[in-house]
Design a protein around this nucleic acid. Structure first.
Lengths: 157, 157
DNA sequence: GTAGAAGTTGAAGCCCCCTTTAAGTCAAGA
DNA sequence: TCTTGACTTAAAGGGGGCTTCAACTTCTAC
């Protein structure tokens, strides 16, 4: 018997993403799908791993663009191995380290602000955390709201 | 002679905010302004301190709603003192501590993920950082892009 | 064969925080 | 007085990441 394929609904149920999100990811080229004769999407199980990667990456603060690039770097010719996934997620560690360092710098600056109460536009470190910005670099960096929004949408509703 | 009042352009030059942002903040009730007979805004110098507070707060990740609430808690009857500003910004310290703790938890989870390469939807800690979400609470929490976007817009352009 | 659940599309909407644009009005120096 | 730069407004736009809607079509269990 052939491999069983999954519908969007199946994928939604197993991944925790809404069907609309999964369709959006397909449109955006983050996941692939075949079609039935009638035009409905059918997904290989391997999409679940990609979606797991996407969810984890979003939690770390990566944009869909970055995730697409990362996923595009996976080999076409063979099923990605554990080592492939490790290679991609290892970079996140650095990213988180940088974000943490940025926040610590900001907090330390804030401490001195609280002490002086100045909020000076010229001097206050919380006003001008240039070193923080430089540390972080130019990419979009943020602690994702997703983190505060962990309740997965109910697929039964 | 009476106190000199500032135009939006003056305020923009001194605060580093764009004039459009300052007008927006006035519409949203974060800062006040009087009007000339001709309908132009005139700002008291005290607006600069409020804007400094707003910029710092945005850097820490507060929304304009939260900043409005904070600013509304300042006494109407007298000029806010250093102690008033300190009271408000002291809360940010806790907030940053929480954000840092959340990121550290996430990073530690990621370490184990890199180790196992699983990205399991059921088990992976980076997939389900429920403890992190619980720690942070329900408010919107994020490391603002603003931090990565520190170059102030040129008021002369 | 058919009901009804689940799938399809494109377009529009949302949220937050502003920026941009268009079409004009005001203020201040020469 | 006149010129010119700065100001005014309402309305629309943008970006990221989806969600929602309307109006169908397809699939599957009975």
């Amino acid at each position: 018997m052939a491999e069983e394929l999954l519908t969007v609904g199946d994928v939604a149920g197993r991944s925790g993403f809404a069907t609309s999100a999964i369709r959006y990811y397909e449109r955006e080229g983050l996941v692939g799908a075949t079609r039935t004769a009638g035009g409905q999407r059918r997904f290989d199980r391997s999409v679940l791993r990609r979606l797991a990667f996407i969810r984890a990456g979003r939690n770390v603060g990566l944009t869909l663009d970055e995730l697409r690039s990362a996923l595009d770097s996976l080999p076409d010719s063979r099923t990605p191995t554990k080592a492939d996934w490790q290679r991609l997620s290892r970079q996140w560690r650095t990213r988180l380290d940088d974000e943490i360092a940025a926040l610590v710098t900001l907090r330390d600056g804030l401490d001195s602000c609280i002490g002086c109460g100045c909020l000076s536009l010229q001097h206050c470190r919380i006003q001008n955390p240039g070193d923080v910005a430089a540390y972080i670099g130019s990419g979009a960096v943020y602690l994702p709201d997703r983190l505060t929004d962990q309740r997965r949408e109910d697929p039964a509703k």
